[in-house]
Design a protein around this nucleic acid. Structure first.
Lengths: 223, 223
DNA sequence: ATAACATTCAATCATTTTATTGAACATCTT
DNA sequence: AAGATGTTCAATAAAATGATTGAATGTTAT
């Protein structure tokens, strides 16, 4: 029996309470959505609210909470308040969360295996592999995020075709080179949909395993 | 404006809801305490409840919640139910949580800088460094966790002296070799207290940066 | 100054969590 | 079979969280 186990008094409990606040701040689907959006780039409250389909005040509330927990920082730019991730470590934290889910939660495995993997018979490309193939000039890189996110930063030489416009622009893509489509992150549906559509039309397409934030975080070059 | 940002329907929201459940399961100081205990080894409900100073039913409730979230697994052994971490990825997740806190939460920096760092003027030893110094036979390794945790697994050649017994056993330790004390993890107070005590008595003592679970997770040998 | 705008704050209500209690269940011992 | 033990379950009360509303704040444009 480790009777003296919890004998340690305040400092550790205080720490753990703080860590718990951080975890709580991650503990809501809307907040995870907001984090994914902010992983792409700094955004205003209004912007985030509409993108995440939340009311203004509600988005503001979630943002404040995450800022207090240390996940976000904000700055004022004119009338707007712009939020951003406080630290790349936040991306790691979210990634760790994803990994635990994928490995240990049946529901997650089902969704990932069923919906995501089902649409994507071929293996996805890791960012390291994509970087190599880009150096060798072997691939066309397709960014299927919304235009504004593309404008704010994207992979070198990537072509931006938001999913909705993709079908009308297919003629601009090469049939003889492999196309790698990427998006916001591992669970962003855009790139899955894009690859499915491209394959239907006879293109040789694959998906980047993760997304733009991870590419950036890995220290790979971007524009 | 990325008006089509949240157009993606169910699968992603369902995923994020699942991930949020995992984060929620981390979002309570008591649960983080339980996780730290379980990082050492498998434990029964009763054991955990007393170690974490919780009522039986309350501990059971927290455990069930974490199991449902995928953080823990349980098995029956006779009358007892033994819980354990479901996956080393859970350790990574907790570590990522700590890192975000240390880097971005003022309160955490204060506690760590004030209490923990204050007691430990010298730099802590990383597990990689300790492994090297152990190979070279340069250090005495001191495990200051409770006896039962030591019995269930510890660093090779480590001597177990739970904090309460340390003062009475000082004569058994060498004054001419460096002593490295370790404990449950980075925020386990035992090793800080131990090093402080040892230094007071003229020993050359340092702390292992993290703890036994991290040593194990790094693939280093243990008994 | 005044108006318009972006965001936060405060108050509210519905919902979810937490801790406690005591009963119920499964397993072992006798 | 009966009792003891370890754990879970169900019910409850107190506390925290989430979403909505409308007012308040700080900024820019007129």
């Amino acid at each position: 029996m480790s009777s003296d186990s919890a004998t340690s008094p305040s400092p550790k409990s205080a720490l753990f309470a703080q860590f718990a606040e951080i975890a709580k701040a991650l503990g809501h689907a809307h907040r995870l959505t907001i984090l994914e959006l902010l992983a792409q780039r700094e955004r205003s409250v209004e912007d985030l609210a509409t993108a995440a389909r939340l009311s203004f005040a509600n988005a503001s509330q979630h943002l404040r909470l995450m800022r207090q927990a240390g996940l976000l920082l904000s700055r004022r730019d004119g009338k707007q308040i712009l939020y951003r991730l406080s630290d790349p470590a936040v991306l790691d934290l979210v990634a760790a969360l994803h990994r635990v889910g994928e490995r240990n939660v049946a529901e997650v495995r089902e969704i990932v295996g069923g919906y995501f993997r089902g649409r994507d018979a071929l293996e996805a490309v890791s960012h390291a592999e994509l970087a190599r193939r880009m150096r060798d000039g072997l691939v066309t890189v397709l960014d299927v995020r919304p235009e504004d996110e593309f404008d704010d930063g994207h992979l070198p030489q990537a072509i931006n075709m938001p999913l909705r416009k993709l079908e009308t622009k297919l003629r601009d893509l090469p049939k003889d080179r492999e196309i790698v489509a990427y998006c916001r992150g591992a669970y962003c549906v855009f790139s899955f949909e894009a690859v499915a559509l491209l394959r239907q039309h006879g293109f040789n397409a694959r998906r980047l395993e993760d997304g733009f934030p991870e590419w950036k975080a890995a220290g790979l070059p971007f524009v």
